[in-house]
């Protein structure tokens, strides 16, 4: 697991690195500290990472400006910042967690636990999903999403208007930042529960969900029981 720490305060960056390595132990294969956004973006272009720990105010530079670009990527972002009042805004952009400064080892540990356990969700779900498309960032409102299908390590967003968008994050990672209405009904499918109009039961324990636009998607056998409880 590769972790990038973007932090302009040298001592704090060292401390984050130290604590992260202590908590995650052998899971961490590599860490990198970068003090400014320009170098960080350059680094991300040439390297793949699994987790970004980001300070939002880097020597007077407002990290919010490029946050959209960062959350459109395949990796998760955790913000570590002194500007507590911008936490909600960060969550709405789709970050996994927001750790206010000053922080303790325990607080950092909690964030990593959330990251480790896929079932855990972010404390505030995102409202829009940022998508990288043809070199530009496009924002998709969560309410426009009908269902999401896994596509290899990515995910395809099927929108209500029939269009499709490819997101760089996997279905597991998206589930962590999406609102709780989005539930897993299949290994490869996630849907807004309010969009399910009907459930079809076929022979041989085969189930299907009928959605708003008469779209039919499969329901996994293992997920059926839980869905039925929530759906009514």
């Amino acid at each position: 697991m590769k972790i990038l720490i973007v932090e302009d305060e040298a001592k704090i960056a060292q401390y984050i690195e130290k604590v992260t390595t202590a908590i995650l132990g052998d899971k961490v294969t590599a860490t990198k500290i970068i003090p400014d956004l320009v170098s960080a973006l350059y680094y991300l272009d040439t390297h793949t990472i699994d987790l970004l720990l980001l300070d939002l105010n880097l020597n007077g530079e407002d990290g919010f400006g490029i946050l959209q670009e960062l959350v459109a990527t395949s990796f998760h972002t955790i913000i570590i910042s002194a500007n507590k009042h911008r936490a909600i805004e960060a969550f709405e952009h789709g970050v996994l967690d927001f750790i206010p400064k000053p922080f303790t080892k325990e607080r950092l540990q909690k964030a990593f636990e959330r990251w480790n356990l896929s079932e855990k969700r972010a404390p505030h779900p995102t409202k829009k999903l940022a998508i990288r498309s043809k070199g530009k960032i496009k924002l998709v409102d969560i309410n426009e999403v009908l269902y999401i299908k896994a596509a290899n390590v990515y995910a395809t967003l099927h929108l209500k208007n029939g269009e499709q968008e490819l997101h760089d994050k996997s279905l597991d990672k998206l589930q962590m930042i999406l609102p709780p209405e989005f539930i897993r009904i299949h290994k490869s499918y996630m849907v807004d529960i309010h969009q399910i109009k009907n459930i079809l039961i076929h022979q041989g324990s085969k189930y299907e969900a009928v959605l708003g636009n008469e779209v039919i998607i499969p329901i996994g056998r293992t997920y059926y029981k839980q869905l039925k409880e929530q759906w009514n």
Partner: peptide, 8 residues
């Protein structure tokens, strides 16, 4: 310093 984002 090089910058990409707007200054606060």
């Amino acid at each position: 310093r090089k910058t990409v984002a707007k200054k606060t």
